[in-house]
Nucleic acid binder design. Structure first.
Lengths: 158, 158
DNA sequence: CCGTCATTGGGATGACATGGGATATCATGG
DNA sequence: CCATGATATCCCATGTCATCCCAATGACGG
């Protein structure tokens, strides 16, 4: 199984189209999916994206829950936020206005590989998020009671 | 299996007609249904809609419930409330006056995908409801299913 | 230095939501 | 049984937007 790896930043053209990175398209084509299924991330101003496989699994889970129960509605509500973004013949998608605003995208888009799925971010926000994680890792590293003065992590990014 | 995904808001014209979103029509046409079967939601001021297939499943479920029980009567009452909304040649439906009032619709309609079925809401009410669910899902630490579990799913078809 | 592939751009076409007029269907009252 | 009005259905027109097709640019490897 191929994975979504690395981060790509592509531009939004005047029609609102963005090229999906070719490596991601390759992975998607192996996931029973001619388009991208996307929904708002719970934690960040980002979009969670995957192929059709995962969504069909979710729909299958729905069958195991009593039809008018609270839990059923909670899961079903995810489908309301979900969108299918079809790929055009050049491998581009169009991000709907509401999603653009939610993510805060103006002129370019970061595609962030997450292994089995990927995310869509505003590039600066993504970089900041990444940096915050580095800081966090670094900070927790410093609070550890180690006696090692030279931490190789520092200065990893030029 | 095709699913009802995403949320679409369409306008009611002066004759009371509303376009059913094209993707939903596509799903419906695969569900043995030239029209929409709809009934009032138990929990919200919304309409539950689907094709004929799902209603037939519900009718089958009725057989598993003791006749004359409270639950039986409740479910059976659904069928009394149920209406068939035929699609015109442009893919529009007409919402009867009582349903319009029940949902609180004035000039536009939200079609809300729920996977195997969809709902009809007043757009503002739907947005509020959906936002509440996002908060709830976030607070309850709702986790998405993984895209490809390591352990084989019980009953999975190779 | 050239060929291939990926991203980017733009015009033309088509699909869809929407609107309005004309015609058919139905329930009601005479 | 027919007349009438209201309502729904069919048909056609329009504007907007997405999709398709074609082209150009840029990156990369041989």
């Amino acid at each position: 199984m191929r994975l979504f790896l690395s981060t790509y930043v592509n531009k939004v053209d005047r029609k609102g189209r963005v090229s999906v990175p070719a490596p991601f398209r390759t992975v998607l084509s192996g996931q029973n999916s001619s388009g991208i299924l996307t929904f708002r991330s719970f934690k960040h101003n980002a979009l969670d994206c995957s192929g059709l496989d995962r969504v069909q699994e979710m729909a299958a889970q729905l069958d195991t829950i009593p039809e008018f129960s609270e839990e059923y509605e909670n899961l079903a509500a995810l489908f309301a936020d979900m969108k299918t973004l079809p790929l055009d013949s050049e491998g581009r998608i169009i991000l709907p206005e509401d999603l653009l605003q939610f993510v805060g995208i103006t002129d370019s888009v970061a595609f962030v590989g997450q292994g089995k799925n990927f995310q869509i971010w505003e590039p600066a926000a993504q970089e900041a998020h990444q940096e915050a994680r580095r800081q966090s890792a670094r900070a927790s590293g410093f609070t550890l009671p180690t006696s090692r003065p030279v931490a190789p992590i520092v200065g990893a990014t030029p």
